[in-house]
Write a protein that binds this DNA or RNA. Structure first.
Lengths: 333, 333
DNA sequence: CTGAAAGCGCTTACAG
DNA sequence: CTGAAAGCGCTTACAG
């Protein structure tokens, strides 16, 4: 079987405690240097690997941060996973990525990945009331947690690092107005075209100021084929807008294809802007404009908030709102 | 603190063993039904959650399968993560995704995520000798492991479920020959243009049979900007091929942009085919052809192999080679 | 600087 | 069907 601290202790005629100190507190000077060296040498030679389950059980700490994220297939989500990993590993902890299916019911909580963790980074979780009901039957409800992402789940009472979606939308729509577009549509997921939603409020505000009429094209789900079909049907029924802002870059990709299916030119007939920062957009012909999330900044900030929360569980909640960057490309010129 | 089986046992005047049996073996009939119900009711009422670390320490089983994957940002890798999760969760186990940086040195093994797991699904790991040197200083070397992916790391002695890259390449190149292309280039990552590599061998074989000359455009790394720049430089120096097969869909995306940068038409001037099955390719203008991985099949198969390996550690190695599907689109017509 | 004792929350073994 | 004992491999507490 695997080598334990007791095996090493026996080999060296020491107590397991001394071995434990050497192996779990590399920087401690509670052990005589000579002893430390002997232990380290023996651990190396005998192939010792700590049992993390035992460590966690005894100490109550796991040194793991969970990353909750929904569909990794969205390009920006995978960038977020990468950036969080770098931030967390930089602090000497490990990250465990869990693809969360946010559709689980509260009573199914027991079926989830409920390993103990020291903290949670939750990317675009459901609204606070829904989320808390879900977590009520899990181990996680009292684990320090920071929310990050596009801000769909703000406001909530805890810590968060989000991007300023309202400002992003405003910039994009104002750009469409500034290049003379008069019929500016918004491709939006189901439920997104209501007052109170950041994107929507900004869209309405800018259009009103410009004296233009809103036109929402509402998607039943987030799948590209759905978006492509829905946009085609909308345009066949109502004619085409001359500018389109998409709630999400994948919507913009599918909308682009829909426009080409109808033989409409981008940007000549329809100017197009996405939202998120998908890296493939600039490789389209023409390259597609977008407002990009500051992924690295956001993840670093979220981790910093989580680190502080872990160290000072009772400090007041903090948050950071980060700016988007508008990437103007040929699709909106 | 958290509720334990002892708390429940005390509450009901039972031994912790009985509580343990009810809570950890839902299907066992070793407990009297009445007792079982009392325990379940109390567990529910008191908010009991099992401590997974304690369970793993005592039983030696974790019920976790690790998924090792490199850069999740590649679209197909995130599809793989999703499909593996579905397969593993379907069997009642949990999956923990670890983004592996395959560049770590063997002596850095101790810095890796070394939590115990019951099995490992490794997506496109390094070749066997390199991998085993890396794992030598970790807990993982004796954990059941199955390889899956594009087959870069075949052959190895263990279990694997891979796609037939050679056949895929052959189909794609033959298609380019069949539509009359005479100068067919291969956009290939550094190290990929050598005999023994599946892609390369198939490429050479088909070209030779058709009496055409090979032309490799070699990339220094896997980044899209690198590919775009390298293809542009190649064409400026040597003129343009009339057909290009890309080792990878992201290469195809960047190559498409490079061709448009040079004002070349796809497919009129250059026919283009990628490899992998990136879902965005069909939204380009024109839609880009590719050979698609059977992601769901492959992941299901890999999990099945791993399940059997866990149950019968000493059975002979098994493997599955799965077919690609050629998706012919406008970019190669 | 080192060690003996107790315990983290479970499960395995065996006894009845 | 139920339970008392021992142990999984560590760390925390305290004693010296």
């Amino acid at each position: 079987m695997a080598v334990t601290i007791h095996d090493i202790a026996r080999e060296l005629n020491l107590s397991s405690m001394t071995v434990s100190r050497v192996l779990s507190q590399p920087d401690s000077n509670l052990v005589k240097p000579v002893t430390r060296l002997r232990v380290e040498e023996a651990a190396q030679r005998m192939g010792y690997r700590p049992n993390r389950n035992a460590r966690a059980l005894a100490s109550g700490r796991t040194n793991i941060i969970a990353l909750w994220i929904s569909h990794l297939s969205t390009s920006v989500y995978s960038q977020i996973a990468q950036a969080c990993r770098v931030a967390v590993q930089g602090a000497g902890l490990e990250i465990s990525i869990s693809e969360m299916d946010w559709h689980f019911r509260a009573h199914e909580g027991h079926r989830l990945f409920q390993w103990p963790v020291d903290g949670i980074l939750a990317v675009d979780p459901p609204p606070q009331d829904v989320l808390e009901k879900m977590l009520s039957s899990t181990n996680w409800k009292d684990v320090p947690r920071v929310h990050l992402g596009s801000g769909q789940s703000v406001p909530w009472e805890g810590d968060y690092a989000h991007v300023d979606l309202g400002a992003a939308t405003r910039t994009a729509i104002e750009h469409l107005v500034s290049i003379g577009r008069k019929r500016i549509a918004y491709v939006v997921p189901w439920g997104g075209n209501q007052p109170g939603m950041w994107h929507y409020d900004a869209y309405i505000e800018v259009l009103k100021k410009a004296g233009l009429r809103p036109e929402c094209i509402v998607m039943d789900d987030w799948e590209c084929p759905t978006v492509r079909r829905t946009v085609i049907e909308h345009i066949k029924a109502h004619g085409h807008p001359d500018g389109i802002f998409c709630h999400h870059d994948e919507f913009a990709i599918a909308t682009f294809r829909a426009l080409r299916d109808l033989d409409l030119q981008v940007p000549k007939d329809v100017a197009l802007i996405g939202c998120e920062g998908n890296i493939f957009l600039e490789y389209f012909d023409p390259p597609i404009s977008t407002v990009a999330m500051p992924v690295d900044d956001m993840c670093r900030t979220a981790w910093e908030l989580l680190r502080q929360r872990i160290n000072e569980p009772d400090s007041p909640p903090r948050n950071a709102i980060l700016p988007f960057e508008f990437l103007a490309r040929a699709s909106s010129q």
